[in-house]
């Protein structure tokens, strides 16, 4: 993907990132940081002063009751929230220390991929779906694209199931396959961070297990932020968990701590309510 100007920016940064003294500092493990993020749908304020750190190559789970602003928060991270008119973000969101508002939005989104709640494959072939990201990044060499597609499908644990029908429509796949296709599609642009908005909500337990396995493997190369309603899922997969309530981040800590020993009463109520 080196042809891409977006990645060129990243390569220039690399030397600064590898300065040894800084790299050992604990905050360098923070890949994505938000500082006092407020979000407004028109006049309605959906997020209130969110401060949250996302650690490199870890899974961060966001939990909370419906409508508390988890999706909204996730959508501010790659600025996809801007596609809705009459919305406004305040505060700072830093990706590797850079304010995302200053970044070019398309290269930001290449670095911060997203998987949506409902699988949304394009009405194109399986191959074209996965190749989409590479193609819009200006890659046209067939061989290279084929490699990327295959590699991404393998990483998303879908290759074996679809290798004989890459030219068929993606809409013919099952829900779970579609969701893995969407993950493959996101992986094909090599994102540094992957945002997952309830990726398993439309899936049965078997497909869910497959995707969880997948997340586990992806951790080696990718930082993930995942919204989930399924608390066992959060407990199983995530290192860190944040609890949202009414647009506020009530508590953020190691997953273990949140589930066993939460410091806030609201968190405990929510978790025990769900578990009990």
């Amino acid at each position: 993907m080196n042809e891409v100007d977006g990645t060129a920016v990243r390569m220039v940064q690399d030397p600064t990132q590898t300065i040894p003294a800084e790299a050992t500092k604990p905050e360098m493990k923070v890949q994505l940081r938000t500082e006092g993020v407020n979000f407004y749908y028109g006049k309605y304020q959906a997020l209130h002063g969110i401060d949250l750190d996302v650690y490199r190559h870890k899974i961060t789970a966001l939990i909370g009751p419906s409508g508390c602003g988890k999706s909204t928060f996730l959508r501010t991270l790659n600025r996809i929230c801007e596609t809705i008119s009459h919305t406004r973000v305040e505060g700072k969101i830093l990706l590797d220390g850079e304010d995302v508002m200053e970044l070019d939005v398309t290269s930001l989104r290449r670095r911060v991929g997203m998987v949506f709640q409902r699988p949304n494959p394009f009405p194109k072939s399986i191959f074209d779906n996965v190749a989409y990201g590479a193609r819009i990044n200006g890659l046209h060499r067939q061989k290279r694209i084929r490699d990327i597609v295959e590699e991404s499908l393998v990483r998303a644990a879908l290759f074996e199931e679809v290798k004989d029908k890459l030219q068929q429509s993606a809409l013919a796949l099952s829900g779970g396959q579609q969701q893995r296709l969407c993950i493959a599609r996101a992986l094909a642009v090599n994102p540094e961070v992957l945002l997952l908005d309830e990726p398993c909500s439309a899936l049965d337990p078997i497909a869910t297990a497959k995707i969880e396995e997948l997340l586990f493997v992806l951790k080696d190369t990718c930082t993930m932020v995942m919204v989930t309603h399924n608390m066992q899922q959060a407990a199983r997969t995530a290192e860190y968990t944040g609890f949202f309530l009414l647009g506020r981040l009530i508590e953020f800590d190691k997953t273990d701590t949140i589930f066993r020993n939460p410091s806030k009463k609201e968190t405990e109520d929510y978790i025990t309510g769900r578990f009990g």
């Binding site: 100007d5 060129a8 920016v9 220039v12 940064q13 600064t16 590797d96 220390g97 850079e98 200053e102 970044l103 070019d104 398309t106 290269s107 200006g138």
Partner: peptide, 21 residues
């Protein structure tokens, strides 16, 4: 930290915008 402005010169910026269309 290198910022994107430092790297992307105005001319590049212009071409990128054209490319984005």
């Amino acid at each position: 930290m290198a910022t994107s402005q430092a790297v992307v010169r105005p001319a590049n910026r212009f071409f990128r915008r054209v490319r984005e269309g």
